[in-house]
Design a binder for these strands. Structure first.
Lengths: 234, 234
DNA sequence: CGCGGCTTTGATGTTCATCAAGTAAAGTGG
DNA sequence: CCACTTTACTTGATGAACATCAAAGCCGCG
C-alpha cells in the first residue's frame, strides 16, 4: 500500500455507495489508486454533462441527481431516450465501443458525477476480469432496460404512453404517488414520440376523469389502478 | 499445454472467424480448452434457438445464418426487436445480467450456433480482463445498434419506416440492391410497429412509383436515392 | 409592464388501423 | 398427385387516432 495513503480517511471512495454496484471486486490498493485519479464534478439543473459527438475521454457515473439522456434526430428535433437516477451509468453504453458520444446527457436536478480517466479505467478493467464482468452485467442491464422501455412505448397508443410515462415517474424515479415533473410537457412528448399538444390534452383528460391531479409541474396519481389499466391496454 | 491436445488440427476454434471478434486475447491453452467445451449446433429455418423465459445456461453465438430476435408483448402479439447476422450475439444482452431470456431468437435461414456452457465462459472471463473488455465493447455495440434502430423507427411515419426497413435489408443484411425478404409481410409489420395491411399497401405504392420491384418475396430497389430520401424525410 | 417561452384548448385535415372480401400460395392428408 | 385446408397476401372502404395549426392564457424575468 502506498505509504502516503496511510491515513485512510483521505479516501472517500472506500465509503462511496457506488462501490457496491460494480466495484465490490476491487482490491484495497486499487481503491486508493482510484481515489487519487477520480474527480467529483457538480452540475446544476439544466447543465450538459455529455454532449453528443464529443470525444469520450472519461469514465463517468452519476453519484447523485437525475439526468436525461437524449439525442438530436435527423430532422433536428430532440428525442429523449431515457431519464435515470444513480447508478445507471452516465457515459453508459458507447463508452467502450465508440470514440464519441452517441447521446447527450443533461442534468434535470443538481447532480454529482464522478469522473475518472477512461485510460485509467481501461487499465483497471484489463487486469481484473471479475470487475469487468460486473461492469458488463451492469451495462447490459441498463441497455436492456432502455430497449424494453422503447419497445413498450412503441406498442402503446397515445393514452397508453402518457399513462406509462406517469407510472414511470411515480414508480421508477420518485417512488411516490405525488411528484414534480422534472421536465417540460414538450420533453415528455419527445420521450414518448408524441406531439406536445396531445400530451397536454391527455393529461387534461386524465384530470377530468379523476385519475390524476395536475397543478403546473406537480402531479398526483389519484387512481393508480385505473392508470395501470390504461397503460396495459393502450 | 495439454498433451492430449498435441495434434492442433483437432481444434477448429483456432481457425474460427469468431476468434477475431472477441477472442483475440485468448491464450492458446484457453482456446484448446474452449474447443473441448464448445458444441456446434445447427438450426433449420424456422427453428427456435432461444425461447423467452427459458433459463440461460449457455453462452451462444451465431456462427452462420440469419436470425430474428423478438418478444411477445403484453397483449400477446409478436414484436420483432431486430434481425441480425453473425457475429452479433445470439444470447446477447441479458446473458450476464438475467437468469432467463428476455427475448426469443429464431432462425430465418439455416443457421449454425456455437454453444459453450455459461459457467465455463464466466470462469474464462473472470480470469481475463482484456477478454471481458472486448466482450463488453461488443455487447455495448450491439445494444447501441438496437437502441438507435428503435429510436429511428420511432420517429418515422409509415412510408419512412417501410423505406427504412428495405434499406436495412439491402445494406445491413444482404449488401445488395436485390434480395429475398427473409420474413413475412406480417413480420416486417411487427418489426416497424405498423399494421400488415399498411406495410403491403406501402410496398405496392413504392412499386407503382417505380422505386422498387416486388415479386413475392423478391425485392429489387430500383431507385435507391429516392428510397433514401423517403427514409430520411418520413 | 411588456416580452418570450411554456401551456392549454379547439378546429381541421392527414395518417393510420381495422374490417371485409377476395386471391394466391403453401401445406396436408387421402 | 390431387383435392382440401390453412395461411399469407392484396386491395378498397371506413372510421378512429393523431399531428398540425391557430389563438389565447399564463408565468417568470428582465
Amino acid at each position: 500500500m502506498n505509504p502516503v495513503r496511510k491515513d485512510q480517511n483521505l479516501c472517500i471512495c472506500e465509503k462511496c455507495e457506488f462501490k457496491n454496484v460494480i466495484f465490490q471486486f476491487l482490491k484495497e490498493e486499487d481503491i486508493f489508486d482510484l481515489c487519487d485519479n477520480k474527480e467529483e464534478r457538480n452540475f446544476r439543473k439544466g447543465e450538459i454533462i455529455n454532449l453528443e459527438g464529443d470525444r469520450i475521454i472519461d469514465f463517468k457515473y452519476l453519484k447523485k441527481g437525475l439526468v436525461k439522456i437524449y439525442r438530436r434526430s435527423a430532422n433536428g428535433d430532440e428525442q429523449v431516450i431515457t431519464i435515470t437516477r444513480p447508478f445507471e451509468f452516465v457515459s453508459n453504453m458507447s463508452i467502450f465501443s465508440e470514440e464519441r458520444y452517441r447521446y447527450s446527457v443533461s442534468a434535470l436536478e443538481d447532480s454529482t458525477v464522478c469522473v475518472v480517466s477512461l485510460d485509467f479505467m481501461k487499465a483497471l478493467f484489463s487486469k481484473n476480469g471479475a470487475l469487468t464482468l460486473g461492469l458488463l452485467s451492469k451495462v447490459s442491464q441498463v441497455s436492456d432496460h432502455i430497449i424494453s422501455q422503447s419497445l413498450e412505448i412503441r406498442n402503446k397508443n397515445l393514452v397508453g404512453r402518457v399513462a406509462y410515462v406517469l407510472l414511470f415517474f411515480a414508480k421508477d424515479i420518485y417512488s411516490s404517488r405525488v411528484f414534480d415533473l422534472p421536465v417540460s410537457r414538450k420533453e415528455v412528448a419527445d420521450f414518448i414520440s408524441m406531439s406536445t399538444a396531445n400530451v397536454i390534452r391527455t393529461l387534461s383528460d386524465f384530470k377530468r376523469d379523476g385519475i390524476i391531479n395536475v397543478d403546473g409541474k406537480t402531479i398526483e396519481i389519484t387512481d393508480m389502478s385505473k392508470l395501470e389499466m390504461i397503460a396495459r391496454r393502450g
